[in-house]
C-alpha cells in the first residue's frame, strides 16, 4: 500500500480504500469556509430524535462524537491516550476535527421512511446467535446519514423509489399496510425478486439496483460497529508488544505448517 492506493472496484471487507470513493459532501459553511457549528448541532439533535422514534436504534448514533470514539476505543484497546478534541483543526471539510468527528449535514429521512429503512435493514441483516440485527446497532441511522449527504441526492432518490415500490408491492400482493407489516416469509418473497440484478425481471432491474445499493449500505453500517467487528472475529486495533505472525492453527489451515516465517 503506497500512499497512493488508487485502485478500482469496490472495497471488500477492508479499511476504506481510497480509489473512486463517493464524493464527500460539502458541509454547511459560513462565508469564510468554516462549518456552521449550528448546523452540526442540529444534526446531532436530529440523530438523537430519530433514534428515539425508531425501535432498537441507539440514540445519537449519527452524531458520533468524542464520547462515542473514546468509549469504543476504551472498550477495544483498554486504554485511552486521546485528548477529547483537536484545537488545531479548523473544523472545515478538508481539516475536520478527527478526534471528535461530527456529521456536518442534516438528516433528511422522515420518521416513516426510517421505519421502512429499519424493516428492510433487518431483513438483510437479521439477529442471530452471534450478533444483533441491523436496526439494533444503528444501521438505519447510517443509511440516513449516507443518503442525506449533499452529494448523494441520486442515492436518496433511489432509496425513496425503492421503499415506495416495496410498500406498493406489499399492499398490492398481500393487502398489507406497508412492507414492515408483512410476515418475514412475505418480505422474503418480495425481496427474492430483486435480490440479484442479473436474475431480476427486466422491469424490476431498477429495484434490484436499489436493493444492491441498500445491502451495501447495511453492510458498511453493520460490520463497522463493535458488534459487527466482534462477530467477524476482527481482533486488531489493539496495541501489542510483538507481532508474531499467524498462529499454528491458521498456518495449518492454509497448508503452510512448517513454513519459514523469516
Amino acid at each position: 500500500m503506497s500512499e497512493e492506493r488508487g485502485r478500482r472496484g469496490k472495497a471488500l471487507g477492508t479499511d476504506p480504500g481510497p480509489g473512486p470513493a463517493p464524493e464527500s459532501a460539502p458541509a454547511p459553511r459560513e462565508p469564510d469556509g468554516t462549518i456552521t457549528r449550528r448546523g452540526a448541532l442540529k444534526v446531532i439533535a436530529a440523530g438523537a430524535a430519530l433514534g428515539a422514534t425508531v425501535p432498537g436504534c441507539s440514540p445519537g448514533e449519527s452524531g458520533g462524537g468524542a464520547a462515542g470514539a473514546d468509549a469504543a476505543h476504551t472498550e477495544l484497546s483498554g486504554f485511552n491516550p486521546l485528548p477529547p478534541s483537536n484545537p488545531l483543526a479548523a473544523g472545515t471539510p478538508t481539516d475536520p476535527d478527527m478526534l471528535a468527528p461530527i456529521v456536518p449535514w442534516e438528516m433528511v429521512l422522515t420518521d416513516e421512511e426510517m421505519h421502512y429503512v429499519a424493516a428492510l435493514a433487518d431483513v438483510i441483516i437479521p439477529a442471530d446467535d452471534r450478533s444483533p440485527a441491523a436496526s439494533a446497532v444503528g444501521v438505519p441511522d447510517y443509511v440516513n446519514e449516507f443518503v442525506s449527504a449533499p452529494a448523494h441526492t441520486e442515492q436518496l432518490t433511489q432509496l425513496r423509489g425503492g421503499l415506495a415500490w416495496l410498500n406498493r408491492t406489499a399492499r398490492d400482493r398481500f393487502g398489507a399496510a406497508d412492507f414492515p407489516a408483512l410476515t418475514t416469509a412475505q418480505q422474503h418473497e418480495i425481496c427474492d425478486e430483486i435480490r440479484f440484478e442479473p436474475d431480476a425481471a427486466d422491469h424490476l432491474k431498477p429495484q434490484a439496483r436499489f436493493f444492491d445499493a441498500f445491502r451495501d449500505m447495511c453492510s458498511t453500517g453493520f460490520w463497522t460497529t463493535e458488534e459487527g467487528m466482534r462477530d467477524l472475529g476482527y481482533m486488531g486495533n489493539v496495541p501489542l508488544p510483538s507481532f508474531d505472525g499467524p498462529p499454528p492453527e491458521v498456518l495449518e489451515q492454509l497448508g503452510l505448517a512448517g513454513e519459514d516465517l523469516v
Binding site: L12, T224, Y234
Partner: peptide
Amino acid sequence: RRMPGFGAFGG
C-alpha cells in the same frame, strides 16, 4: 483481516 470500514463487503 483488516478493520472493516466504508465499503465493507460491498459488491
